[in-house]
Design a protein around this nucleic acid. Structure first.
Lengths: 162, 162
DNA sequence: CCATTTATATCAATAATACTGACATATATT
DNA sequence: AATATATGTCAGTATTATTGATATAAATGG
């Protein structure tokens, strides 16, 4: 019987620490500029996330949003209430199930979303272009590995056409 | 004169959106378990970040921490005050410049840091192992591309030996 | 040596994001 | 008709962050 190859002990401590820090720094820098812009509109980061995902999944319901954002209904309600009040988002009632509120962005909402996300797009586009397609594939693999899998798959489907 | 190759128009819209979402989901899931653990100690995410970077850079000063965390002095002070009070961190005064407070973790602080970060290490280790070394290299490249460069380089140096 | 800068700390007021828990209403399902 | 689901809302609280003002000690520059 042949001996097994040496155990793969996994990534070294330094490598793990670096990854943790990369995530921290990337996230920190990723939200800095949108946060600053949001402040001018008297909105916060939570509004950005909400607007983003409503734009991403037009006709999304409250429960679907809650599932993505992983916050409580009460928290979302405050944010959503403001966005509705200030005309960034409109609700319609589902014809199939009249309990459901289908959310979508107004023109104003789409405008703000575009503004807010533009800086993030530029960052990603630059990083992708500089690093090349192989790096992009690796990045995706690792990120997907870090994310907790969940059964209800609403993620990474191609955006619905509006 | 030969014609130039077609312009690289950069990553497609769908690709950019996916990257934004990968960052959101990864960060969301990355902090979920540490947050839950912190709650048992009546501490929050800010304490984790602070403990982490003090562990990472023993003898770090207040200003250096502020520069990493990008929060205000007043915010950090509350967090740091609690950590000192509760014996997770100790301060010593720099001999070279007696205005400077050098922070390091106590045994208790190291214990908590290990506990909090363990889940994150496991996530990274699994993702790295599953995706392989090329993916890791790609991941690093992209993440570094996303991070805002800054002149004062305290990042990604090998940890100082304690 | 004196003026200025740097490093840290602290007080007060406020905002944003989130939480738990309770309760209400409309609609759908069984 | 009873129950479950989807949403909304009220009340109270915690955490993380902000701005702005002020204080103190120690280092540095002229």
């Amino acid at each position: 019987m042949s001996r097994n190859p040496p155990e793969n002990t996994g990534p070294a401590e330094t490598e793990l620490r670096q990854a943790i820090e990369l995530l921290f720094y990337a996230y920190r820098d990723f939200i800095a500029e949108p946060d600053a812009m949001l402040a001018h509109h008297n909105l916060g980061r939570a509004h950005h996330r909400t607007i983003y995902f409503i734009g991403r999944y037009p006709h999304i319901t409250v429960n679907e949003l809650l599932d993505i954002l992983k916050i409580t209904k009460q928290s979302l309600n405050r944010v959503l209430g403001q966005l509705l009040n200030e005309g960034y988002v409109i609700q319609t009632t589902s014809a199939q199930d009249r309990r459901r509120r289908l959310m979508e962005l107004t023109e104003k909402g789409r405008g703000l979303e575009r503004q807010l996300t533009e800086n993030q797009r530029i960052r990603i586009a630059r990083a992708y272009k500089d690093a090349g397609p192989d790096a992009v594939a690796g990045f995706r693999k690792i990120m997907l590995g870090v994310i907790t899998d969940d059964k209800d798959r609403h993620r990474f489907d191609p955006p619905k056409t509006v």
